[in-house]
Design a protein around this nucleic acid. Structure first.
Length: 230
DNA sequence: TCATTAAGTATGC
DNA sequence: GCATACTTAATGA
């Protein structure tokens, strides 16, 4: 695959921002670029971690399955971030499933390059550990919310997490820049799509949100914060 | 305060 | 026109 990728694609991204032109070129030469259509599973939980990924465009859902076969959405990965980085947490298998929430473009490298990236590229290791730390914080937040908050507050929190990582500002309003269904939100919050639907309808009547199919816009972010019980 | 059931409308390939 | 997304009401834990 002699794919010619533009260095400017990744030069500004945190894991690579401290690298010079040559280093970035080397890095891109070893990468595979691929399109993952919406709803594609990129890798599954427990699968041998053969590659690690950098998301260039789109959003990824990180999903875990319960023993009962129900899915729980742990978090979302925004463009510009690494994912599938089992090595960073000392694992040889992926800890969760990664699904393309919309059409996604990602670079990937074989795992045997991971250590070399850490050794050779200044800032790569520290930046990846920073994002790992951030994701842990996010997980802790939702665990706490699950344990202590009522459904309405949890759904409001979930919306806030969505706009935090996939929000596109539009004046006072913020809209979630990738497709989200009520089922998705219920999978984030441990409730049913019916409850999510009722809440969104009620909030729409109050002018807090506005939603089309697979598309949500928050008209009044401040009131959402209040609803989240924060 | 919620899940569940059930029965409906809307939307988009 | 069929599957998928979404809405709403009723019932009961």
């Amino acid at each position: 695959m002699s794919n010619r990728l533009d260095p400017s694609l990744i030069a500004r991204l945190p894991p690579f921002s401290k690298l010079d032109r040559d280093q970035i070129t080397t890095l891109l030469e070893q990468a595979t670029s691929q399109l993952y259509p919406a709803e594609t599973t990129i890798f599954s939980e427990g699968q041998e971690a053969e590659r690690f990924f950098l998301l260039l465009d789109g959003h990824i859902r990180v999903v875990r399955l319960t023993p009962g076969g129900e899915q729980v959405i742990a978090l979302h990965i925004p463009p510009g971030q690494l994912f599938g980085i089992a090595q960073a947490i000392g694992r040889k298998t992926y800890p969760a499933m990664a699904v393309a929430a919309e059409d996604c473009i990602a670079l990937s490298w074989p795992v045997n390059l991971w250590q070399r990236f850490c050794d050779d590229f200044p800032g790569f290791a520290t930046e990846t550990y920073r994002t790992v730390g951030e994701r842990m914080g996010e997980l802790h937040e939702s665990i706490l919310a699950m344990a202590t908050k009522h459904v309405e507050e949890r759904v409001a929190c979930a919306l806030m997490r969505l706009i935090q990582q996939g929000g596109r500002k539009d004046g006072n309003a913020v809209e979630i820049s990738f497709p989200v269904t009520r089922q998705n939100i219920s999978d984030m919050t441990g409730t049913t799509l019916h409850t999510v639907s009722r809440l969104l309808s009620a909030w729409a009547r109050d002018g807090v949100v506005e939603s089309r199919r697979r598309h949500i816009r928050i008209l009044d972010p401040h009131r959402l914060v209040l609803l989240s019980g924060a």
